[in-house]
Design a protein around this nucleic acid. Sequence first.
DNA 1: CCTATCTCGGACTAAATAGATCCGCAATAT
DNA 2: ATATTGCGGATCTATTTAGTCCGAGATAGG
Lengths: 164, 164
Amino acid sequence: MKLPVSTEWVLHCATTLAQLEPGATASAAQLAAYYDLPAPYLAKQLQSLVKAGVLAATTGPRGGFRLARPAAEITLLQVVEAVDGASSPYECREIRQRGRGALPPQDCRDTCVLAAKMADAHDAWRRTLAAESLADVLAALPPTAPARTRSLLAATASPSRRTP
Amino acid sequence: MKLPVSTEWVLHCATTLAQLEPGATASAAQLAAYYDLPAPYLAKQLQSLVKAGVLAATTGPRGGFRLARPAAEITLLQVVEAVDGASSPYECREIRQRGRGALPPQDCRDTCVLAAKMADAHDAWRRTLAAESLADVLAALPPTAPARTRSLLAATASPSRRTP
DNA sequence: CCTATCTCGGACTAAATAGATCCGCAATAT
DNA sequence: ATATTGCGGATCTATTTAGTCCGAGATAGG
């Protein structure tokens, strides 16, 4: 059971975008430079956040990504499931109905006990992440963070700047 | 984020072994026939349960697997983590310390807020599975299940029995 | 006490899936 | 009109998972 590494990327990028002034955008190249990440792959992941309705993208020069909603209305669960999907890690394939020990269909009207317990655990996981919003994360950061983030992001805005 | 398919196998097999009389064993071949599973691969997974201390194995003729402890003292979490490992699905690679936006080490003395939230979610998942024992699962099954299981398992005990 | 056979145990091979990259197309502000 | 940016597809590699095989060890029966 493993989440893709891009989960950490998009969580941090969403936190970064939440620190921008309303309406401002950051491009995929800026975010990639900010965290030293492979730009094309990061862009692909940000696109899935757009499809999930977490981010909004504007194309063209000076375009980029911004939060689709206020930070208080975006939960960590929405970000995580945008890149990893919402399906449960445990998939019940009904092996209780196969083989020599197969149960008759009348005994399988309600879901398998084991599958139910695994679903309970997944629900607990989702509930924990759904209870935390990007605004909560921002509140845990030092008050100087947004200004610092904005200035460091802007350092990559112009393509003429190149630091060897 | 996906658990191996063998997770379902070992959960059901552990439940099956919990229905045997104390001291009785079932071989990997018996369990594989019971659930129509590939026998060698199932054996491999049962071995990891032995290494994790959940099952005990006795070799030689009439040998096989049995629970290493009473069913009430074996949690679903122990079974799941025996095949999938105990590591968290979210791995923090400290990207906050890399790239242009890298934070100074003094700001990273305590763990990343995002990593902490993801760890909280994983703890909630583990707690849910740790609260459920094999005995609890047995209690949710019909009272006739153990007798049925034992008789169907025994049908594969002798290699001379072959049903075309 | 010895042998035959049944069991686990770990090493080995193939398939699937995730990770990562590249290129062409559409859209927009300068 | 042009340059810059997001968007989607096709492609390639690497890691993990799924599945198979053969050998070591132990017990039951002679």
